[in-house]
């Protein structure tokens, strides 16, 4: 069992509160990856990305599933509860305030456009972190092919996500197992 540094719950709360509050446009995984893997180095790229795959296979919102996975990995049940609560605090308050003031704000000229710009910036950040993950996880021909097939099937052909994972994941895992057997 590898040793992971014990991350304070307060730090988990702060990071996920911030991620939740600014998670416009649904671009959350990239941000979690940036904070948790790249800036704070709480977990490895592989650990995070395999967790993302698990979080996406499971039903529910990807953002909250990813938060639960990372929180649990860092601090068990307390970590998972902290990350989930922290991530939902900001959006919960924001969406109620927005619903109450919506009529006023949306009539302000340029406001909807500014919100679209904010969402676009969030997507831009996700694009950048996804390219980083792609580079890290596509070392070697087989992982690169697996990644490309998943991307094309889900992103371009829009095949059902669950079906794609059920086909691609066993092949990818099987090949990884075979490769590790051969290396021994």
């Amino acid at each position: 069992m590898e040793q992971t540094p014990r991350v304070p719950l307060k730090s988990i709360y702060r990071v996920f509160f911030e991620i939740g509050l600014f998670s416009f446009g649904g671009a959350v995984s990239g941000w979690i990856q940036r904070e948790v893997v790249e800036v704070r180095k709480w977990m490895s790229h592989e650990d995070f990305l395999s967790g993302i795959a698990l979080a996406q296979i499971m039903p529910g919102a990807n953002a909250t599933n990813s938060a639960v996975y990372v929180g649990q990995r860092l601090r068990g049940i307390a970590g998972a509860a902290t990350a989930l609560t922290a991530m939902m605090t900001g959006p919960f308050v924001a969406i109620l305030v927005a619903a109450m003031t919506y009529q006023t704000f949306m009539k302000l000229p340029g406001f909807p456009q500014a919100m679209i710009g904010t969402a676009a910036a969030a997507v831009g950040m996700l694009l950048r972190t996804s390219v980083t993950s792609a580079r890290v996880s596509a070392r070697g021909l087989v992982p690169a092919l697996v990644m490309a097939v998943t991307f094309v099937a889900v992103g371009i052909f829009r095949f059902p996500l669950l079906a794609v994972i059920c086909v691609v994941a066993p092949v990818s895992v099987g090949l990884a197992f075979w490769a590790s057997e051969r290396r021994r």
């Binding site: 795959a53 990818s172 895992v173």
Partner: peptide, 10 residues
């Protein structure tokens, strides 16, 4: 190792 590239593709 097998799921990481699937996650990146997603």
């Amino acid at each position: 190792a097998g799921l990481a590239p699937v996650g990146a593709g997603l």
